[in-house]
Design a protein around this nucleic acid. Structure first.
Length: 292
DNA sequence: CGCCAGGGCACCG
DNA sequence: CGGTGCCATGGC
């Protein structure tokens, strides 16, 4: 992988194991708009990014090499060797091969903690398009305006401080439904420093989850997603309805098992690479409607 | 119209 | 503890 800046555009070339479309659409992230074939507008880290991939090259428009090195390189997880991850996962598990080879270009994004926390509280009992809508509503209502692409307006996801201006009723007006008090509660926890991002990143996964689950409305699954996508704990193995179905078909001979049993199996079987395995399985299984 | 969605909580035995 | 109903809202 190498990157160079040409007239306000950063060109990242010689990419391996990276597909922008798969990475955005695999269900880990909700704050973007698809603009065209492998072309996206993304709101993250206080910036609007216009990105387009062509073959092994990624074009990042209206930005520079400094912003790339400070933000996007890490955001897209480009410094990690996914060849090694795939080799580890496929070493003693042929069942995973088709999922990994089909979703070959998925990378786990390093997303912002607070946005990830609120987004996955929203995600409960909701489908991805609607989660995206609610994230956009909250951002438009309480976050800073970033710019527009082809008439699509982008806003920053608010900070905890900014979102604390919203009452529970105002959160409901963003179509959050019964999750409004959960979100309100989470905002207080972060704003008051009861949950500290650096501490959550540096402590172990179990402690991280336990701290997150102090928030009413955050259970095991949401805590695992926030740990994985927003705090860098790549061993987390979130079990949702899809992973449950997929794992039961692929690893349990179609027999029913509890979420707890499935998570324990995932953690034991995939170890420190649980989060990657989970994401390949989730995206592949959901696309292929495995178990449904 | 009914059903379900990247769940979690309260309440029950 | 394990199971069940309910929680807003929208897409199909």
């Amino acid at each position: 992988m190498k990157a160079e800046e040409i007239k306000n555009t950063v060109v990242v070339s010689d990419l391996k194991d990276f597909d922008l479309g798969q990475t955005m659409e695999c269900g880990q992230c909700f704050h973007f708009i698809k603009l065209g074939e492998n072309e996206y507008g993304i709101s993250a880290y206080g910036h609007l990014l216009h990105a387009k991939q062509d073959g092994n090259s990624l074009y990042l428009y209206n930005t520079g090499i400094e912003e790339f090195d400070n933000i996007w390189r890490h955001y897209f997880d480009l410094d990690r060797d996914y060849g090694e991850i795939k080799a580890f996962l496929l070493n003693d598990d042929e069942k995973l091969r088709e999922a990994v080879e089909t979703m070959w270009g998925v990378r786990i994004l390093n997303q912002e903690f607070f946005e990830t926390l609120i987004s996955f509280i929203i995600s409960q009992n909701k489908q991805i398009p609607h989660i995206k809508q609610i994230v956009a509503n909250i951002s438009k209502g309480y976050g800073e305006y970033l710019g527009s692409i082809d008439g699509n307006e982008f806003y920053r996801f608010p900070t905890a401080e900014e979102l604390s201006a919203a009452s529970e009723e105002e959160l409901r007006a963003c179509k959050t439904g019964f999750r409004a008090p959960y979100i309100w509660n989470a905002v207080q926890f972060v704003k008051d420093g009861i949950l500290n991002e650096e501490e959550l990143k540096s402590c172990g996964i179990e402690e991280c989850r336990n701290r997150l689950m102090q928030i009413k409305g955050v259970g095991m699954k949401v805590a695992n997603c926030v740990s994985l996508f927003g705090l860098g704990h790549r061993e987390a193995f979130p079990v949702d309805v899809w992973i449950k179905r997929i794992m039961e078909v692929m690893y349990f001979n179609g027999k029913e098992h509890s979420n707890k049993e499935i998570e324990e199996y995932g953690v034991r079987h995939f170890g420190n690479y649980g989060g990657y395995a989970q994401q390949y399985l989730f995206y592949y299984g959901k696309t292929e409607k495995i178990g449904k």
